[in-house]
Design a protein around this nucleic acid. Structure first.
Length: 239
DNA sequence: CGTGTTTGACCAGCGC
DNA sequence: GCGCTGGTCAAACACG
């Protein structure tokens, strides 16, 4: 049944400096709501995005099919840059930052960006003394510190949680300021997979669902596991 | 009984 | 320093 289609917008912004106004790129594409949601359904559109991002395409490619890697080079990877000193062309302005648009539509996303930039300034390295309960805190810190690449989708849909082929477990819900709709937090149920996603509705237009993915799956979508899909192609979709 | 959701509490980070 | 806010935890709960 492909009777209903959701209108999906993929919003990205490209900017180098914190003060630089990002250039927004928006892609609209309809896709059947019954199909796997972002990662698979938007694959083709994402390809066209990279084609329009010369700065990104000029980045050193680790593999020929690395565009998801490139696309998910969000602020978080910028932060990782500090930790590994080996990402996205290194520091010193060579690295491009692909992130969410700085707008009223997703101020939370921008906060993520500034958050990462701030933490860059502060520098890592905080494994000092540990109290008894500090153990737990250190875990939380580590979890907050090392953030995964993010990717955001805007979808017009009646349902909050769209089927993207993966199994998710809800671990939290929060009412965000200036929004009447709560934000839900999901985690991939697969072992050793730390991918998370947030789902919330747009304050301006409750019909729009904002889905933010964080991290890369280390496994295939559960729906696809049984199917005999081309493994090579499938693996390139993992994120 | 296993799995997933709800929800209050807690903490870190940030702005003032 | 303090208050606010977002993100996460985990116990309690619901459901099949």
């Amino acid at each position: 049944m492909m009777s209903t289609t959701s209108q999906t917008s993929v919003n990205h912004s490209l900017f180098e400096d914190q003060d630089q106004i990002p250039t927004q790129m928006e892609f609209n594409m309809p896709f059947p709501s019954t199909q796997a949601f972002p990662p698979l359904a938007c694959h083709q559109s994402l390809k066209s995005i990279t084609a329009l991002l010369p700065s990104l395409s000029s980045q050193p490619a680790s593999s020929s099919a690395n565009f998801p890697e490139t696309l998910f080079s969000t602020s978080v990877q910028r932060q990782r840059e500090d930790l590994t000193s080996s990402l996205i062309g290194g520091g010193g302005g060579g690295g491009q930052l692909l992130s969410l648009n700085r707008s009223r539509l997703n101020p939370w996303a921008w906060e993520e960006v500034t958050d990462c930039l701030m933490s860059k300034r502060m520098g890592g390295g905080d494994n000092h003394h540990l109290g008894v309960s500090a153990m737990k805190m250190k875990k939380m810190k580590a979890r907050r510190k090392v953030r995964e690449p993010r990717f955001c989708f805007k979808t017009m849909s009646d349902v909050d949680v769209l089927d993207d082929g993966y199994k998710w477990r809800k671990y939290g819900q929060k009412v965000v300021k200036n929004t009447q709709h709560p934000r839900s937090y999901y985690r991939c149920t697969q072992d050793n997979c730390r991918v998370k996603k947030r789902v919330e509705r747009l304050a301006e237009d409750p019909r729009m669902v904002i889905t933010t993915y964080e991290g890369r799956h280390v496994h295939s979508p559960s729906n696809e596991l049984e199917d005999s899909q081309s493994p090579s192609e499938l693996s390139s979709f993992l994120w």
